[in-house]
């Protein structure tokens, strides 16, 4: 049977999130014809952002009641399209949006769900997925046994698709209305830190700090991050203690990142942290404990007190700029 993939885009403030392009890369690797669904208030306008990526169609579901993401309002339209347009693979990037939405869609359409996959192998029309488990300490190879399959893909492992030119046909699709359960859930607000830095998922350089930074977290790391145009990340311990805001957490249960350059500063290197950054191209660790596990994954380790080493690093970089 000919397969046919539906990529679900993610919208934020009227635009398509760049993370969507990881799911597009997945769809290209699968190799079957694919469509991209842009769903949300303002989708009609945002759809133009994804017409040059080789999708057969860009489907647009634009409805005023889809202004803020609530799973119970988004999932029914995805499920209805899978049926009416006969998609058999449904893919979304494993952001917090994708992780919330994909399983509910899977349950609606009776599909198996492969979460957070880092790779796909296509063999004679059969897909197998590779996915990290046990905090990245093992990779499982798995297959979905149902005819329909839902997949969420790791942004850190599927590089954002490059535009391939051309223009996909744009087609408006009807809003299938909310689930009955939507009557029992109400969007209240979305608080997001005024972050002028690049997103952790997209940054070329990340400067991450741990518990060791204490109240000086921003004072010590910001000058370095500013200089390098870097995103700032944190360990769980730094977030739990309130030194860094929770959305900065990198790790098994936080953001999974794979920048060109990752600084782990005053971070011990617990497996849960490593699970979120081991895929970085170059890792630098600064830690005063020469035996800290972070040094086992660091390409360049500096055993030093971070409170002197980081300001020195800033001075050195400025001097050489």
């Amino acid at each position: 049977m000919m397969s046919h993939t539906l990529v679900i885009a993610e919208m934020h403030e009227g635009k398509v999130r760049k993370s969507t392009l990881s799911a597009v890369t997945f769809a290209r690797q699968v190799g079957a014809p694919f469509a991209i669904l842009v769903i949300g208030a303002g989708a009609a306008k945002a759809a133009a952002e994804v017409v040059a990526f080789g999708a057969q169609k860009v489907l647009v579901c634009d409805d005023a009641s889809l202004g803020n993401y609530v799973c119970e309002r988004f999932a029914p339209t995805v499920a209805a399209l899978v049926k009416s347009l006969a998609f058999d693979i449904i893919a979304v990037t494993a952001s917090s949006y994708g992780k919330d939405l994909a399983p509910r869609v899977a349950a609606k359409i009776g599909a198996g769900y492969a979460p957070d996959v880092s790779g796909v192998v296509v063999d004679g029309g059969k897909l197998t997925y590779k996915r990290p488990m046990y905090a990245g300490n093992a990779f499982g190879t798995c297959a979905v046994t149902t005819p329909l399959q839902v997949v969420s893909v790791r942004q850190s492992d599927f590089a954002a698709a490059e535009a391939s030119g051309g223009a996909s046909e744009i087609e408006a699709v009807p809003y299938a209305g909310p689930d009955a359960a939507a009557a029992h859930v109400e969007f209240v607000s979305l608080e997001h830190g005024k972050n002028e830095r690049p997103d952790l998922g997209e940054a070329r350089v990340i400067v991450s700090g741990g518990r060791a930074l204490k109240e000086q977290f921003a004072a010590v790391l910001d000058p370095l991050a500013n200089l390098l145009g870097a995103a700032v990340g944190a360990s769980r311990a730094a977030c739990d203690a309130g030194y860094a805001s929770p959305e900065l957490q990198v790790g098994q249960t936080g953001r999974v990142v794979a920048p060109k350059l990752y600084f782990a500063i005053g971070i011990s290197g617990a497996i849960q942290h490593l699970a979120g950054m081991k895929g970085s191209k170059v890792i630098v660790a600064i830690n005063k404990d020469a035996d800290a596990p972070i040094f086992q994954v660091a390409d360049y380790g500096l055993v030093a007190d971070l409170f002197t080493a980081v300001p020195e690093l800033v001075t050195e970089l400025k001097a050489q700029a």
């Binding site: 197998t128 488990m133 300490n137 499982g140 500096l302 690093l313």
Partner: peptide, 29 residues
């Protein structure tokens, strides 16, 4: 609805080095 056929350890990262100073770090990077 999902079947695992095999498991593997993650690829090991090549061993890195310790640098002696901030200057050496910047130079290597």
């Amino acid at each position: 609805k999902i079947e695992y056929t095999s498991f593997a350890l993650p690829p090991a990262r090549a061993a890195g080095i310790k640098v002696k100073s901030v200057q050496e770090l910047v130079q290597k990077l």
